[in-house]
């Protein structure tokens, strides 16, 4: 009798523990690849840690004070904002139009689709190089076109002027990101049952009504998720900037992400770079929470 009680107790405990045992490998991976690096980064941000200085010591909030008081920080912050807003607005709008167009059958659609979606498959570094040449101030195709159209008299050094450098990298990024929205939205469009459109036809709805009353509500969850993801990706994304301008001239095309790379690997100040990283993380966190609350994300799946 006694034995039986003990064994049932044991099996109950085992039952309670069981799910956690299954989760253990995953948790271990999370600790090694996420929690530890983040904790280490946060810790470094409170340290004087310069690669070319052998003395590393705890320095409190010093890094944060320095980083926040630098005039570059405000510039980089507003650059990041424009970088995200400019990129996402055009990427989304153009991607949506592209998806809607690609959703109707027409001759050669498969081929056309493959060509239009190609930029997404090209590595960021290559895109940076291509656009760097397009924007070249002497031989660039864009300057050549503008000259031939007689829109300008003298070639413009797009990447060397603080007033145009950021816009130029944004243009490159828009080109790169359109296919992502197109693919995601296209997939969502194709999942809309056609009967609903047929029903709408019977009711006499026009194409605009159909788009706003049927199409848009159906793809709303996809749009919300893709925009959320893309904003975070674009903020984190520095390849194109790094290749095209290295953030220059005078940080005029630096975003937070490329500025952190610069701090860590040119200035070699890992303490300040980490402090910037923590600030960056907090901004992203605030953004995500706000976005999810504003869009009432938990209900996004309901129609």
């Amino acid at each position: 009798m006694r034995v039986k009680v003990a064994s049932s107790y044991l099996s109950r405990r085992r039952k309670l523990l069981e799910p956690y045992l299954y989760l253990l490998p995953g948790i271990c991976l999370l600790i090694v690849f996420m929690i530890y690096p983040i904790a280490k980064g946060v810790f470094t941000s409170f340290c004087h840690y310069k690669l070319n200085d052998p003395n590393t010591y705890f320095s409190g909030l010093h890094n944060y004070r320095v980083v926040l008081s630098e005039p570059e920080f405000r510039l980089v912050l507003s650059n990041s904002l424009w970088w995200v807003l400019g990129s996402i607005t055009f990427q989304f709008t153009l991607g949506l139009i592209l998806a809607v167009l690609l959703n109707r059958p027409f001759w050669g659609r498969g081929l056309y689709q493959a060509v239009v979606l190609a930029p997404w498959a090209v590595p960021g570094f290559l895109i940076g190089l291509i656009w760097k040449w397009l924007f070249n101030g002497q031989y660039g195709v864009i300057n050549d076109l503008l000259l031939r159209l007689r829109l300008i008299e003298k070639p413009i050094s797009f990447l060397a002027m603080p007033s145009t450098a950021l816009q130029s990298v944004i243009v490159a990024n828009i080109w790169y990101g359109i296919p992502f929205f197109a693919i995601m939205i296209l997939a969502a469009l194709q999942s809309i049952p056609t009967e609903i459109y047929d029903a709408a036809d019977v009711d006499g709805a026009g194409p605009i009504t159909k788009f706003f009353r049927i199409t848009l509500p159906y793809i709303r969850p996809t749009i919300l998720v893709t925009i959320l993801l893309r904003v975070i990706w674009i903020l984190n994304y520095a390849d194109i900037i790094y290749v095209m301008t290295k953030g220059g001239p005078l940080n005029s095309s630096d975003t937070l992400a490329s500025y952190i790379i610069h701090k860590a690997y040119t200035v070699l100040d890992f303490g300040q770079a980490s402090a910037l990283g923590v600030i960056f993380m907090l901004i992203l966190l605030a953004y995500t929470v706000t976005y999810l609350t504003l869009t009432k994300f938990s209900r996004a799946g309901e129609l």
Partner: peptide, 17 residues
């Protein structure tokens, strides 16, 4: 100043980078 004048007079604007 004299050396930098070469940027304004004898180099394309791209040379800034």
């Amino acid at each position: 100043k004299r050396f930098m004048d070469m940027y304004f007079n004898n180099a394309p604007a791209d040379a800034l980078n």
